[in-house]
Design a protein around this nucleic acid. Structure first.
Lengths: 202, 202
DNA sequence: TTGACATCTGTACATCGGTTCAGTATAACA
DNA sequence: TGTTATACTGAACCGATGTACAGATGTCAA
């Protein structure tokens, strides 16, 4: 929050807080009252400064018209990623924040879906029973990549291996199971490539 | 969206869309104009219906005062979890939607943090180098649970084992490594319990 | 057929609220 | 030393906006 004076920052924070907690942009008079100003013009001056410095935009004539610049609108979502944990509680030590773990940021919405893994056929590739496999929907999966095959409407996570004859072999990652050759006549589709794994422990 | 008439649903959707795309609640007259009504009262009637049916709340006298009921404010976030994948593309087959994988829903915000796992000392517990361990901040970790120990500001994920003499032993899950007894004199804190795992593949 | 409800027109009013103008005071700056 | 930015007071204007009242039409279940 560089470039703002103390007062301007207070005003800006107040707007953000109102938006978050009250769910709507405060009116000029509400800000005025909250800060104990006698004149709404005090607020106006600050808002103009915020506009000039690029923190907000305003739509002339419209009630509750403050528009927060995109940079500051990004809500802190997801799980905070902590680097070093030198002092205090990890969560409060936000100096050490490495960002946020947010699935919507990592995996483009609309392109990915998640699948519950059942069984232990991929356990050596790190997929346990009950895990979520995150799949990027795509028509092709290369040999050696882990992908989702949909056979007769049943989705399975397996390592793909394209055979020289053009057929597909689905390889489990568990020595208890044997590779499975997909019948070219079967109702088969590629669901996509597995690009992530999530496990909820206990 | 049960209980709403077609028109009411249109109005409600318009409000949601305005909020999402324009960033602010539409005024009664803006709604009026968007639908081509000659009277603002048409909007008012619909808004009253929406209030009565619990879709919105209104704060009397306030401009742009529509407050969307929490149930409908929740945007579809996270990765869609697909169950059966009988027909069509998994993402489009929303009949088979089992919900959304959203870290903010699974892990209460403010209570959890994520830690990048480095090394292979916990590989047999399923934690690979580079994985994110999701940690619930709590002062106690039971024997046998996987937790985060912070020693000299350095956080490590290990299985906890409390010894009969009250000392703590940190047990790696990799036969290459030996259990480590925490020096009672050391600068030691418990970071919390590991409750989740996330891996980004490739 | 009667009443409840949904959907809309038309008019009107009070106040909410953005905006402007005229000043004052202080500190930073060049 | 004048200029500019910050930080306000005080008053006022007027369009934006929520809200109310009166009424019309159509649907649908009791």
């Amino acid at each position: 929050m560089r470039g703002l004076t103390k007062r301007q920052e207070e005003i800006f924070s107040f707007i953000l807080r109102s938006l978050r907690e009250e769910g709507c942009i405060p009116s000029v008079r509400e800000i005025c009252q909250a800060f104990g100003f006698a004149s709404t013009n005090a607020v106006n001056d600050h808002l103009e400064a915020l506009v000039k410095k690029g923190y907000i935009n305003r739509r002339p004539g419209m009630a509750r018209n403050i528009e927060i610049a995109p940079d500051f609108l990004i809500p802190e979502r997801g799980v905070p990623i902590v680097g070093r944990v030198a002092a205090g509680s990890p969560i409060e030590a936000l100096e050490n924040l490495d960002g946020y773990l947010d699935l919507d940021v990592i995996y483009e919405p609309g392109l990915h879906f998640a699948l519950r893994v059942s069984g232990d056929s991929m356990i050596e590739a790190g997929f346990w029973d009950g895990d979520y496999a995150i799949v990027r929907q795509q028509p092709k999966v290369e040999s050696g990549e882990i992908g989702v095959a949909i056979i007769d409407g049943q989705a399975t996570v397996k390592r793909f291996r394209w055979l020289p004859d053009g057929a597909l072999e689905l390889v489990p990652e568990n020595e208890k199971y044997q590779p499975f050759r997909v019948d070219p006549e079967a109702d088969f589709r590629i669901g996509g490539k597995v690009v992530g794994l999530h496990r909820v422990i206990r």
